[in-house]
Amino acid sequence: SDIKVHVGDITVELHNVSEEFARLVEEALRLGLNEEQAKEWAHKALH
């Protein structure tokens, strides 16, 4: 599904992702990663 993740003043739109993936992206953003890094990190975490 499509999910918007908000962290501080950052909003990341995720398309066709699981809630778990979105949660991992949100966690990575909170750790200070940028959007691209957060998506990559979440992807690796799920595989």
Rank of each mutant, 00 (worst) to 15 (best):
F21P: 00
W41F: 14
Q37A: 12
V12T: 05
V5M: 02
V7S: 06
A22M: 05
L24D: 01
R30Y: 15
G8D: 08
L31T: 11
I3E: 07
E27Q: 14
K39W: 08
L24H: 09
S18L: 04
H43M: 10
V12S: 05
L33V: 03
D2Y: 13
L33E: 01
K4R: 06
T11R: 03
E26V: 11
H15I: 11
E19Y: 14
V17K: 06
D9R: 01
H47L: 15
G32M: 02
Q37P: 02
E35Y: 07
V5W: 02
V5R: 00
E26T: 10
L29Y: 03
E40C: 08
L33I: 05
L33S: 04
T11N: 01
R30F: 14
N16K: 05
S1A: 10
L29A: 02
L31W: 11
H43E: 13
E26K: 09
L24P: 00
E13V: 15
V17C: 04
V7P: 05
L29G: 01
H47S: 13
H15K: 07
T11I: 15
E27P: 00
E36Y: 12
H43C: 06
I10S: 07
N16S: 09
V7L: 08
V17L: 04
A28C: 02
F21T: 02
L46S: 12
V25G: 00
L33Y: 14
D2I: 15
E27G: 06
E36K: 13
E40G: 05
L33D: 01
V17T: 09
L24A: 10
L46C: 03
E13P: 02
L33Q: 07
Q37F: 06
V25E: 01
H43S: 12
I10Y: 08
F21C: 01
E20T: 11
W41N: 03
V25Y: 05
L46P: 03
K44W: 10
E20R: 11
V12R: 00
A38G: 02
A42W: 01
R23L: 11
R30W: 14
F21N: 01
W41K: 04
D2M: 11
A42F: 01
V25D: 00
F21R: 00
A22W: 07
I10C: 03
L29K: 02
N16M: 08
L46N: 09
E40W: 08
G32A: 01
E26Q: 09
V17Y: 06
I3V: 09
V25S: 00
I3R: 02
D2K: 02
L31D: 08
R30P: 00
V25Q: 01
D9G: 14
V5S: 02
K4F: 09
R30C: 06
G8T: 05
L14A: 04
H43V: 12
E19F: 14
S18Q: 06
V5D: 09
E20D: 13
E36W: 03
H6R: 02
K39N: 04
L33T: 01
L29M: 08
L24E: 02
V7R: 01
H15Y: 06
E20C: 07
R23M: 13
S1T: 15
E26L: 11
H6E: 15
G32C: 02
R23N: 14
R23G: 11
E40I: 03
A38D: 00
E20F: 10
L33F: 13
A42K: 00
G32I: 00
V25N: 00
S18N: 08
I10L: 11
V12A: 06
K4Y: 07
R23K: 15
L46W: 12
N34R: 07
K39P: 01
T11P: 04
Q37S: 09
D2W: 08
E26C: 06
H6Y: 03
R30H: 15
T11S: 09
A38S: 09
E40H: 10
D9C: 05
H43K: 12
Q37C: 07
N16F: 07
E35D: 07
V25C: 01
R23C: 06
L14I: 05
D9M: 13
V5L: 11
S18R: 08
W41R: 06
L33H: 09
E20K: 10
D9S: 13
V7M: 07
T11M: 12
G8W: 04
K39R: 10
A28S: 03
H47K: 10
G8I: 05
L33A: 08
L31K: 13
V17F: 04
I3H: 15
R30N: 11
A22T: 05
S1D: 09
E36C: 03
E26F: 11
A22L: 05
E19Q: 14
H47G: 14
F21V: 03
K39S: 05
W41G: 02
K44H: 07
S1F: 13
E27H: 14
H47V: 13
H15L: 11
E40L: 13
L29C: 00
S18T: 14
V17Q: 06
L24N: 04
A45Y: 14
L14H: 04
A38V: 01
K39E: 06
E27C: 07
H47E: 14
H6W: 06
H6N: 15
V25L: 07
K39C: 08
